[in-house]
Design a binder for these strands. Structure first.
Lengths: 114, 114
DNA sequence: CCTTCATTTCGCCATATACCGAAATGTCAA
DNA sequence: TTGACATTTCGGTATATGGCGAAATGAAGG
């Protein structure tokens, strides 16, 4: 329903696509994403809010961190289909591969201080 | 390859989505689209250029008109999958339905003068 | 070659978006 | 309650985008 272009707007940003591809590897907190994308915490937080409002991700608070998850079981057909595309083999890029490696390396207990 | 966000940017506009949904009904020229969207010819032309450069549509010149077609047989997996979503039953809206009606009614021989 | 007419390109303006740092918020543990 | 720390919200700025009208382009016919 509503405004379909809003869904595509959420995906129409290089950094937000990188975030979704990283969440494909595992759930992440803001500071882990900040470290990999090399952006300000506030900027990452904004991107996550946009992806969450569109239904592509959801959050679960855990201790002092907020973990963000890829919403693989979205009940919105369009969101679900879009996430399938983004997770498909064809949706690939050097940047995404490098980010995925970083996701395995980052440790929130070391890097998280503003 | 290249910049995946560019594909989503092309779809991240209300009027460009309306154009794709109208082309689902039948090929159209610039002035028919202008009439339905109520935009300037130059604006429609820009939107079509963006959709064409991303591979969602193609053009075939016919007499004095340029006809734009939905590129249903795109060889780019991602473009193909995105067009499938846009053509799916779930991708619906009152605006798209009204536009589709208009597409049946417009006659380029009557309305085309700048 | 000249005219006509659909379309595209250009220059400009208003709004939307991405980004940052600073301040506010929220949560946990001392 | 207070302090520490992850996150979000706020205010501001630079760039990107969508819109228009005018001028340029291109194709068809006289």
């Amino acid at each position: 329903m509503g405004n379909k272009s809003k869904l595509f707007k959420a995906l129409a940003d290089k950094n937000r696509l990188r975030i979704l591809k990283m969440l494909e590897v595992r759930p992440l907190c803001v500071c882990e994403i900040r470290e990999i994308l090399n952006l300000a915490n506030s900027t990452v937080s904004q991107h996550l809010a946009i992806l969450r409002k569109s239904g592509f991700i959801y959050e679960i608070k855990d201790n002092k961190w907020v973990n963000y998850y890829l919403n693989k079981r979205s009940t919105d057909d369009v969101v679900y289909a879009l996430l399938m595309i983004i997770q498909s083999k064809s949706f690939d890029d050097d940047v995404y591969r490098k980010d995925a490696e970083q996701v395995h390396l980052v440790d929130r207990n070391i890097l998280c201080r503003l």
